[in-house]
Amino acid sequence: MKLQGSYTLPAKREAVWQLLNDPQRLAECLPGCEQLEVVGVDHYRVRLKLGMAAISGNYTGSVKLTEKKPPAWCRMSVEGQGAAGFVQGEAKIELAGEGNQTVVRYAGEASVGGLIASVGNRMMELAARRILEQFFANLASQLRT
């Protein structure tokens, strides 16, 4: 599953970068994040409750920045496992400043396995997009405050 898109955030690039690198505030933006624990440099362990409407599940996993060039871009790898299956993904995130705003572009690939891959097929991509939209909306409101 390929995921890509962009989102405009109401803050300067440096502020966005800072937010993305602040575990405490990041945790508040990750949809369904119940716990975020720093396990190393740029490496977090997370517990998320994710889903859509009636469908939801708990996942534990890790988020890692594998490469970065502040404040322009970073590469991120995410993996999560839960009773309903697993998710693995990698994405490149680029920040471009435009005045007082920042355009975030992301492009990546995710694969899902287990139950959610075999029965959730038709909803998968849309669910992923919705979760990302939620994430960016949360970032935006964090930056506004």
Partner: peptide
């Protein structure tokens, strides 16, 4: 099976 070997016709719904 998708390219990762997941059986995506995993139920009678698909």
């Amino acid at each position: 099976y998708d390219e990762n070997g997941q059986l995506i016709t995993g139920e009678l719904t698909d």
